[in-house]
């Protein structure tokens, strides 16, 4: 059965909710075993040979989530509140029963609550990017690749320690 537009939307919404509710260990479960979370610095780069903002395989994602949930990660104390908004969802043609490519736009609002007198606190920020999700059917539809190219991916970033 081909992945429907509604199913793709529902999977991405579910992911957004898990991230926003900081259910990060559940988030790990959305990926295939060989799945990748990739924030490239520019279009067309080779993630093994050129720098990315993030390029996480399963091990990398597990470490990132462990650091966020179980360690003193100062730039996430207090943790970022986030709101992931997904729109402009399009299904690429050529999908099969087991593979689909979904494109979307992503806007993430982020806030670390605190005194506005303190740098980095009390100010809402917005990140925007283009998303590319490769989904694979493996005991349900899973994320084989989450690639987000941020509008400002090659610009100086401030505290990008939450998951986009």
């Amino acid at each position: 059965m081909l992945l429907t537009h509604a199913e793709a939307e529902s999977l991405l919404y579910q992911e957004a909710r898990l991230l926003d509710e900081r259910r990060l260990e559940d988030w790990l479960g959305l990926f295939t075993e060989d799945g990748l979370y990739w924030l490239p610095m520019a279009e067309g780069t080779d993630p093994l040979r050129e720098p990315s903002l993030a390029y996480d395989d399963a091990g990398g994602r597990a470490q990132r989530v462990y650091a966020l949930l179980h360690t003193r990660h100062h730039s996430q104390i207090p943790p970022s509140r986030t709101l992931h908004c997904i729109s402009n969802l399009e299904m690429e043609p050529g999908a099969t029963d087991t593979e689909a490519l979904v494109r979307c736009n992503l806007v993430v609002y982020e806030l670390r609550p605190g005194h506005r007198q303190q740098y980095g606190m009390g100010k809402m920020r917005a990140l925007a990017g283009r998303g590319e999700y490769r989904l694979r059917f493996q005991d349900g539809w899973k994320i084989a690749l989450k690639k987000i190219l941020l509008l400002d991916s090659d610009q100086p970033m401030t505290n990008l320690t939450f998951i986009v």
């Binding site: 924030l39 093994l48 040979r49 050129e50 720098p51 990315s52 903002l53 993030a54 390029y55 990398g60 470490q63 990132r64 650091a67 990660h73 100062h74 730039s75 007198q117 303190q118 740098y119 980095g120 970033m157 401030t158 505290n159 990008l160 320690t161």
Partner: peptide, 28 residues
């Protein structure tokens, strides 16, 4: 080497980002 330096000192890395949190807190 790239994987390592990105994990430690990259934009979403675990080391450099926590240094910068301290810089912002110290400036405050």
């Amino acid at each position: 080497r790239l994987k390592d330096v990105q994990w430690r000192l990259g934009t979403t890395g675990l080391i450099g980002t926590d240094d910068m949190e301290i810089f912002a807190a110290a400036q405050s």
